[in-house]
Design a protein around this nucleic acid. Structure first.
Lengths: 333, 333
DNA sequence: CTGAAAGCGCTTACAG
DNA sequence: CTGAAAGCGCTTACAG
């Protein structure tokens, strides 16, 4: 590792003091045009890059934002992260990222590591089982944080997400409007708050219209294609009288497609399938999937903005922001 | 922002010196069991977290790894990043991430920012048009870096990727073995090295077997579903005599599915389609896609390991590591 | 086995 | 408009 060029060396080369170099490079103070030019020239010729560890240490200001998610390879989080990084970068922030794998211990340890590295703020999509105590360390250190997507009802921080109950209502209403009222609901883990609310939205809407979501048609499990296929197969064994399957997300729905294709039922004719997420590919499946768009990129942008204002105006009362989901009608119902 | 607890305060509380606290917390030196206990107790009670900005500044050692990719919302990079982050985290490193959006200026600026933040090393999937000069700044600062996935033939750094030529050969051989020899190749931008090599692999294999890949059946363009659909539609207008379409990736293939379905051709019967990537969902499409698996997760793990050794043993000669692609036969050819 | 002291590279009142 | 000096929170030879 070569010796880094320091601000002092730039100062010597430019024939000024280190203080002046700092002022110029940070665009502060009132330094004459001429001096500025000298300094910039010297800095460029030496390929000088300011040492942010040192400035953070001295000034207490940081340009690092931490992003903590369950699993960045999940397309929803991948898209959300992309927009978070973009908005953060446009304001000069660098994004530090970590996966919790939905593990509370990993989440705590990652929070500590990020605080140690000196993040200016933390964006967290909480691991299952988190409560406001999970974020005590962050509050103790006086660092602003914003929760997103997974609601833990921690009212000391902003929350940005979508309205899951509403998403459930939208899906159910659409199915009813198509004359489909004998519904099943599959996928999503028992403890997942988002699932609970989507399910509630579906079941309330059915009830309000004089129908019931039967317990034996509800299967909780992982939010994967495999589980979608398994659950659908089980569903078909005991009961071929359903009119549509509400799937926790599009991947679960794709699993349902598989099982349904094997069973000989025609999706969109004998039986309906609806998903949540609107992953881009779902438009090309056979048949194209009807689904509820949840806007990961918009959530990413909104979250990043909330984070930036929390960093810059830390006194404001926490907000809860819900983006409205919307129905994407295609041919699967 | 509250005042952070410093090592001095922990030292006072534990009745020892700051040096001792540092030694204990870093597991260095030979400190007595008893003193260690006192120190740890004091640190825990004060919720002390070591300030890494300060230790990096003083020691020159960093626990930050930078990851620079075109677009983290691309599933290939999303999966790769997940494994990189995991391996890095297991060795105590935190991952800093940035998207270049395939823009060279953005790439340079991100490299500077990351160096300024003091990364220990950089993992880069180079933006199109990069050459070894693009990474001069990194070398000037004596920071180790590893290139991945997109080869820029910069022989001063390790490279980890897959063998694109081989991938093309594998795809073409399979098609020939199915009696499909009138091939088209669609998707991927003109300047993309990976595309060039896949294409070369396909065309060489055809030539070796006495067939030709006709120019009018080659369409370069973005690597998206939309482009796959457009290119396929165009292909069908002028020429219905193809036996199979080689698609730059699975999403392009999904686009081809769309156009083919509209045209009335039966995929897997009248015409073959093959992709690259093996995105998990491709197994559930109708028909399930035959594709070439490129192992993003394995590349992520291998890259992270190369990065860690470059950080720890910086003198070793750069390596070029190619993971072998493998064919996943399903029903589309 | 432990402490005193120097110094990493910055920023920031303060003085002039 | 610019410089001298202090100090952010650590780590690390060095001394004892």
């Amino acid at each position: 590792m070569k010796k880094r060029v320091s601000i002092k060396q730039v100062a010597d080369k430019a024939g000024v003091s280190a203080a002046t170099v700092s002022l110029v490079l940070n665009g502060k103070g009132r330094i004459s045009e001429q001096t500025q030019k000298k300094v910039r020239k010297a800095a460029a010729s030496m390929k000088f890059i300011l040492n942010k560890s040192a400035s953070r240490l001295r000034s207490g200001r940081s340009l690092l934002i931490g992003l903590i998610v369950n699993d960045i390879s999940n397309p929803f989080f991948a898209e959300m992260s992309y927009d978070i990084e973009t908005v953060a970068a446009d304001s000069g922030y660098l994004s530090v990222i970590a996966n919790t794998k939905d593990d509370l211990d990993r989440q705590s340890s990652v929070i500590e590591t990020m605080i140690g590295q000196g993040v200016a703020g933390l964006i967290i999509s909480a691991a299952s089982g988190s409560d406001d105590a999970s974020f005590q360390t962050i509050r103790d250190h006086g660092i602003p944080y914003v929760l997103c997507v997974r609601d833990v009802r921690d009212f000391s921080a902003d929350f940005v997400g979508f309205d899951n109950y509403q998403a459930g209502v939208i899906a159910a209403k659409h199915l009813l409007s198509q004359g489909l009222d004998k519904l099943a609901f599959i996928g999503g883990s028992q403890t997942n708050e988002n699932r609970k609310q989507r399910l509630q939205g579906v079941s309330d809407t059915l009830a309000k219209n004089g129908h019931t979501l039967l317990d034996e048609r509800i299967f909780a499990g992982s939010a994967t294609r495999q589980f979608g296929a398994e659950a659908t197969a089980k569903l078909l064994e005991v009961d071929r009288d359903m009119s549509a399957i509400v799937c926790f997300n599009d991947y679960v729905a794709l699993g349902a497609y598989e099982a349904l294709n094997r069973s000989g039922l025609k999706i969109g004719q004998n039986i309906g399938v609806i998903g949540f997420d609107n992953v881009p590919e779902s438009a090309s499946w056979t048949p194209p999937l009807t689904t509820v768009e949840l806007h990961p990129r918009a959530i990413g942008r909104r979250t990043a903005k909330a984070m930036l204002s929390a960093i810059n105006e830390p006194i404001v009362a926490p907000e809860r922001i819900y983006l409205a989901p919307h129905l994407v009608v295609r041919d699967s119902c």
